[in-house]
Design a protein around this nucleic acid. Sequence first.
RNA 1: GGCGAGUUGGCGGAGUGGUUACGCAGCGGAUUGCAAAUCCGUGUAUAUCGGUUCGAUUCCGAUACUCGCCUCCA
Length: 473
Amino acid sequence: MTTIKLHNTKTRKREVFTPIDDKNVRMYVCGPTVYDRAHLGNARPVIVFDVLNRLLRHVYGDGHVTYVRNFTDVDDRINETALKRQQAGAVGSLEELIRERSDETIDWYHADMDALGALRPNHEPRATEYIDQMVAMIAQLEADGFAYEKEGHVLFRVRKYADYGTLSGRSVDDMIAGARVEVAPYKEDPMDFVLWKPSTDELPGWDSPWGRGRPGWHIECSAMAYELLGAHFDIHGGGNDLMFPHHENEIAQSCCANGTEAMANVWMHNEMLQVEGKKMSKSLGNFFTVRDLLEQGVPGEVIRFVMLSTHYRKPMDWTEKKREEAEKTLGKWALVTAEEIPSPMDDEFIRLLGEDLNTPGAIALLHSFARQKEFKKLRAGLDFLGLDLASWRAFFDEKDLQYDKYISMDHRSIINTLLGERFLAKKNRDFVKSDHIRDFLTEAGIKLNDNPDGTSDWESTSDFDPAKLEAIK
RNA sequence: GGCGAGUUGGCGGAGUGGUUACGCAGCGGAUUGCAAAUCCGUGUAUAUCGGUUCGAUUCCGAUACUCGCCUCCA
């Protein structure tokens, strides 16, 4: 069986992956808070863990992997949007409008991530559908002394959990010394974090032993992971900005509530995305969503390919240059793999992916397949990485078709006449004339490729300009 | 201030305790009347300083720099 090695944040080492149950490999990845369109950075973990999901399915069997990615639909930004809509005259209760906003955001997310070639996880639980489980978990924590109620809030007692901070390598005392913690009157200790908080009438809330309220940020992942994967599972993933506090808090909640040593065996974190060397932010004006790129005509496969061209644990820079190179490469590969039936997966390809998802290495191997004209292997590798180029071929065809239609018979006749003249000129070694004709056609957006027998093929480019062509008359 | 990740040729980007992938660009060649397209070839770079070692880009330590997190942003 293929050996998969993964870098484990918990140990900071690359370790051989051994499933708890190889008939049911379980992975949880933190999904989006569904308050708005997913930005490009959101796409990185989706694509990275999608490749891991595919690899696990390849190695352990399609039916032996359970992949869970949640939707967090309890969030103040969702509430704000809903409230604004209500004030603007939208019909429905606030709760209905909140649900509506979450629904539409989830639909967008699905559409965008589908376009990136990401397979849907087995389960995509929504936080609002697991409130009971969260309440039960919080109650358990309270009963065991890991949590306490104060002024309608329920807080996790960080000092009670000795291992707190081990994932991210922090100590509670150091963090307090850093003085960046929120001090609140209802906290026993500044590091304690919220499990449950009270809701006002304008905010969504659920009944609980502590009154009407809503869950804190971290508890939903603990509750949903427990429900769908159990108290102890194999892999937990997400962006490295979630390492602290989110994942640290998840571990604390889950291990204390479930009485387990570990929540997940392997913790994986992808590095952040940058744009042209800078952090993507609204203030820098380089903030954009996946949908923005798709609408600009950047194919999802290009986004995916660029993402996979950098190892997931390194910062990845989205640049215009990379976009162009990826488009060129995939364009070539789309053509040569068009009629190919994929071969069985290449061992080396799988071995590379098994080395902590070495996708750049795997792509390098695809280049070598292309160079050696092993197009069946190339096709298989592309398929494995989720780079479906079928739409590319259709796109090319469609584009050609459009140009064909666009170029009228009259224009074709002009081109053919010119080519005829050029053929004769070349035959008579009148290269001044033949070059002149070629320059003229190039200028009009018709590209020539000469054949050894003196004839020429031509194709239109996106610069094709009928007016310039007609100017010959 | 604390924590984490990173620093490889012109650019992008891997692997490796001892002849350093791969892509793009560049250069050279084949081909061509010249181009284009295609094909072939070509690149001793691993931040700095120490240490371990017969030998380090690879292991260890320090320094510098970059990025991120500690502010419900993946």
